[in-house]
């Protein structure tokens, strides 16, 4: 069994490390994703919904990955920004206040409001690290959920907001899951591109330095206050974007759509995919959002099996499916042919 596993592991690594095989695989998957909605098969509608939903989580994952993966700020209340984005769209484009602004106008407003909320959350937690930060952000997520539940005049409380307008694109009403499938796909590509650029910029480098050692980062001149707030703002902005798309697609939103499990799921998919890795977020979303849906056949045992898979995964591959280059080097250094340190053997390590 163990041997089998390790051969499997090696095969998997071979495929990943061969550029031709890798790009062929990526190309095939991309092509499949592109044509799924136009294929004619029995469960097409179901798959379009599930994969569209997965795409939404990819967007959320990419946003939270900026905060947690790059800047190293453990945020357990990410759902708050998703909610802010969703409610912004729902309130400005529904019969609730009889406002019917265009989706494309509200989208930047929703993202901006969520980003602003990100900064508001960031200011009080500037000096917190690790578990303390996690607790405060967890509370923040709950506060937003409680607010949308209890500010009944504004949000209609637990009755939710229904009859949310569909977006229009050049006169075409976007209302079917296939429409949203392609819209989400485009947004995923945009956000992937945006976060990739960030990752490789001076900003990304500053975040990584800050994550590794905050004092040392300050000493070389990184304004850690500014970069922390920026990380919160960028992450929140992307979350708000996802929320607005969600509200438009669903057509109705309820406070219960924004519970703690959303934050947990987004965080888990980042960890499963590989902290700080953008392809990892994509794979992690499929593993965490698509897979549990496929497992529906096992009905009652679904979550049990899923939890078991998670545990196995964390033991067998702690760095995630597609780790960022750095984490791979760190956790599996022995598998990479690095020159052995030629130091004095008496040296004591710390």
């Amino acid at each position: 069994m163990k041997k089998r596993l390790s051969t499997l592991k090696r095969k998997y690594q071979e495929i990943l490390s061969n550029p031709i095989a890798r790009w062929t695989l990526i190309g095939l998957v991309m092509a499949l994703i592109l044509i799924i909605p136009i294929l004619n098969f029995q469960q097409r509608a179901y798959w379009v919904r599930v994969i569209g939903y997965t795409g939404l989580y990819i967007i959320l994952g990419l946003g939270l990955n900026v905060v947690v993966g790059l800047a190293g700020l453990l945020d357990l209340g990410y759902v708050a920004f998703y909610a802010i984005g969703a409610y912004t769209y729902a309130l400005l484009a529904s019969g609730h206040f009889d406002l019917h602004f265009s989706f494309w106008l509200i989208l930047p407003i929703a993202a901006f409001l969520a980003g602003f909320a990100g900064i508001l959350l960031g200011i009080p937690v500037l000096r917190m690290r690790g578990d303390y930060l996690a607790i405060v952000t967890l509370g923040f997520g709950e506060i937003i959920r409680m607010l949308v539940t209890n500010l009944t005049d504004l949000t209609n409380g637990s009755q939710g907001l229904i009859g949310i307008d569909s977006p229009y694109l050049f006169g075409l009403e976007l209302k079917t899951s296939t429409h949203f499938y392609y819209m989400i796909l485009i947004f995923v590509i945009l956000v992937v591109f945006f976060t990739l650029r960030l990752d490789h910029s001076r900003i990304g480098r500053s975040w990584i330095a800050m994550r590794e050692d905050e004092d040392a980062a300050q000493m070389v001149g990184v304004n850690t206050t500014r970069y922390k707030l920026l990380a919160f703002a960028v992450g929140a902005l992307i979350g708000g974007l996802g929320g607005a798309i969600f509200a438009a697609w669903q057509g109705s939103i309820f406070p219960d759509n924004f519970n703690l499990m959303v934050s947990i799921n987004v965080l888990c998919l980042i960890i499963i995919g590989g902290m700080g890795s953008i392809p990892g977020v994509v794979i992690g979303s499929f593993a965490l959002i698509t897979l549990p849906d496929i497992l529906r056949e096992f009905s009652d045992y679904r979550l049990l099996l899923f939890g078991f898979l998670l545990v196995v995964m964390m033991i067998a591959r702690p760095e995630g499916f597609i780790p960022s280059q750095r984490r791979r080097l760190e956790l599996h250094a022995e598998e990479f042919a690095l020159p052995a340190p030629a130091d004095n053997p008496t040296e004591s390590e710390t």
Binding site: I208, D213, A216, R326
Partner: peptide, 8 residues
């Protein structure tokens, strides 16, 4: 304790 950026 050196404080290098260990993942860079």
């Amino acid at each position: 304790g050196r404080g290098i950026f260990s993942k860079l």
